[in-house]
Design a protein around this nucleic acid. Structure first.
Lengths: 163, 163
DNA sequence: ATACGACTTGAAGTAAGGTTTAAGTCAAAC
DNA sequence: GTTTGACTTAAACCTTACTTCAAGTCGTAT
């Protein structure tokens, strides 16, 4: 089967301008053209497009994706190089996920901070030394004082220390 | 204690230009100025800076961070709004992490694809119907045929089916 | 007193990743 | 046969998030 740029755009959840932009940036060297100069995508091209999609969503710059695609077109000699690239990219992504989890931790601490503030009617409870209050959900009592948030994990532990 | 923009930049792992840019974009309305017009950060300002840092790393646009900071300066009336915002942002981040995990799945499948290809000396094994081969690490035998990668999770399961 | 480093501003420049526009081609429908 | 919709290109434009530049101020050390 052959597919026009419009069909491919719809299937990939993008638009034709973006695909043309990718083509111009060297991400689609595998795409054929018909007699009229129009792009004709093949079934196999979707394998490439999925790789592009994955790397894009993983935060890989367009230029670097192009390099990988071109490695793919160079045949079996670049198999190891391609493996090594993906291996490295896997570690980069894992690191990003770890970083996101840290921000989630912080976000959850701040949610707790605001939940208890809303409950108390004021943010001041977190700045008043030794204020006791009760978590409205768990009904646990806490004593807590906000200093500098140098280590948020430490603060979270501090925050959940029951009296 | 008071801190100059340079000291703050170093402590936050950024540079003075970026902090001035943030200030211009309305992210630092809490910063005082001395008689000479120079920025004077207070200890408490680091609480704001940490929030900015977190939201920035979470992928929140600069403008939106500014909105949140200004909400913070409006006092206890906006506590619930601030909670709701962070609650929503938490879900957005969780969704991002889930998305990243999907890309990690795909990346790992492709690593397996290349690992077995390197072992076989050619990528062709994945296009030859019913080719049997052995995972060099686990010594398990596989039979596997690459069609369209419509559902990568299904393919991964297919790939690890022992004969 | 003057040199130095750190600060101030507005404005221009940069890079990434598209998006839009203008001018034109092509194939099928009416 | 001409209109319509999808395609083609190059080039201009846009947004985000800085980064750099130019010109000037301030406080301290020599």
């Amino acid at each position: 089967m052959k597919y026009s740029i419009g069909e491919v755009a719809e299937r990939m959840g993008t638009n034709t301008s973006t695909l043309r932009y990718y083509d111009k940036q060297g991400l689609l060297p595998f795409v054929d053209r018909n007699a009229a100069g129009r792009r004709e995508f093949k079934d196999n091209d979707f394998n490439f497009l999925e790789v592009i999609n994955c790397l894009k969503k993983s935060g890989v710059p367009v230029k670097d994706i192009g390099k990988f695609i071109n490695l793919c077109l160079q045949g079996d000699e670049t198999l190891r190089e391609r493996y090594d690239y993906l291996d490295q990219e896997e570690r980069v992504l894992e690191e990003k996920v770890t970083e996101m989890q840290k921000q989630l931790d912080f976000l959850r601490f701040k949610k707790w901070y605001y939940k208890t503030s809303v409950e108390a009617g004021t943010e001041d409870i977190h700045f008043t030394k030794g204020t006791k209050f009760v978590d409205p959900e768990t009904h646990q009592q806490y004593r807590y004082e906000l200093k500098n948030t140098k280590d948020i994990h430490q603060l979270i532990n501090l925050a959940v220390d029951e009296i």
